[in-house]
Amino acid sequence: MTTRSHRAAVAALLTCALAVPLLGAAPASASQQAHAQTRYSVPETRSTGAPELPRPAGPHPVGRRTLHLVDRHRTDPWVPTARGREVLVSVSYPARRAGAGSPAAYVTTDEARLLLKARDLTGVVPPETLAGTRTHARVGAAPARGRFPLVLLSPGFGMPRTTLTSLADDLASRGYVVAAVDHAYESLATEFPGGRVMPCVACEEVDARVEFAGVVRGRAADLSFVIDELTDRRRAGALARVIDLRRIGAAGHSIGGATAAAAMAADRRVRAGVDLDGDFFVDDAGAGLGRRPFMMVGAEDTHSPGSDGTDWAGAWDRLHGWKRWLTVEGAGHFSFTDFPWLGDRLGLPTDQEVPLSGERSWHITRDYVAAFFELHLRGVPQPLLQGPTDLRPEVDFHRP
């Protein structure tokens, strides 16, 4: 990929992170971008109660633990004077007993304020309302007995790990340990310990300082570090004892999906991966995975074969194991995150360019990601992944 195309990709991702409304996909033109930035600038505050995330579908209650990890053997690419490469990890896991512990928060009030500002929703949704979003995880709950597969999640560029909370908790309820990772200085709304809200330095400097592929590879190194920490009993304690080292997967949204592929290529411990609507950015995406399985799921308008700008075709040709290329009709870039579900419940206007409802977006994302990991980390056959079904007519299977 040329420097010019890298910068174009960065600009598109920053548009997604900074300009697109809570429900929408990335606007395709300057006029649409301007419309997106003004359409939701409603002067009055909406008087809605705190929303609730979708209830997990699995049989396990869900526990939550947040870990602040520092890799002192690596220099942070954005702030070289930092004390190492920091990550903040929310670990969702099957809990031993329902109701144990205290309810897990969705985001802090400061994180909510910054996220709403980034989405151009200041004055539309009170930060306290978003911060009060009810989750289904409990802090302090003891892990269930047994050993479970580990799945790592990486969010979109500029977005916090919390945007994948519903997916993390649903997988945990099905019997997975799920680590959602915030990468330091790459999020617009993440509060680290001590009340530190780190600026998104990457959002301002990525095209001027490094090739965008470097962001992907840096995040892949973060995921390997998280695996090291979570599986070290001296550091992770009870969590390490319930993780099955032989069954590790990775998934992510947008650049987080590219990170999943890069993590697989760099770390043989990662056995399976999912990319949710993310271009890969690296020239050799898909290489190095061997026969390990990988699935790409994206919006039909932007990630179908032949779509302008996507680099999925090259990656598809380099995937030599089990693979799927799925697109979802009516989906937008953020349809694979918590945003559409929350937007529906906060009473935000529907984006006409993204006709798929928040509830339908969630069910499709949940069902296909869960089916993928059930098949490839547990060996349970999944008819859902064999081809199109009348029950989910929005999902198309491509075999270019």
Rank of each mutant, 00 (worst) to 15 (best):
L326H: 08
G175H: 11
R72W: 06
R292A: 12
V125P: 12
T122R: 08
D76S: 11
T389G: 15
P21T: 09
V215R: 08
A30T: 01
F373Y: 03
E191T: 15
P155L: 12
A315H: 06
A105F: 02
R392W: 03
I255Q: 04
R161M: 05
V62G: 06
E52C: 04
R119A: 14
A250Q: 01
E52W: 04
V124E: 11
A272E: 00
G387C: 10
E52Y: 02
T3S: 14
F373H: 04
P355V: 02
S335K: 14
P393G: 05
A95G: 07
S154G: 13
V369D: 01
L230F: 02
A202F: 00
A9I: 02
G140L: 02
V178P: 01
G146K: 13
S335E: 04
D267F: 07
S47C: 02
R378W: 07
R55H: 09
A313T: 12
R145D: 14
L377M: 06
V380D: 09
G330L: 12
L14H: 01
A313C: 00
E300P: 07
E204D: 01
L121F: 08
P54K: 04
W78E: 05
T109G: 06
P143R: 01
H136F: 09
L152Y: 05
A258F: 07
F372V: 13
V62D: 04
G290H: 10
R235C: 02
P383T: 13
R246L: 00
R4K: 13
E211A: 13
T109Q: 11
G321N: 13
R345Q: 13
D76M: 12
R360E: 10
G278F: 05
W341S: 13
P126H: 14
T133H: 10
A261I: 10
G273W: 11
T231F: 03
T365I: 06
L115G: 05
A238L: 08
R161A: 15
Q352A: 07
T66R: 14
T15W: 02
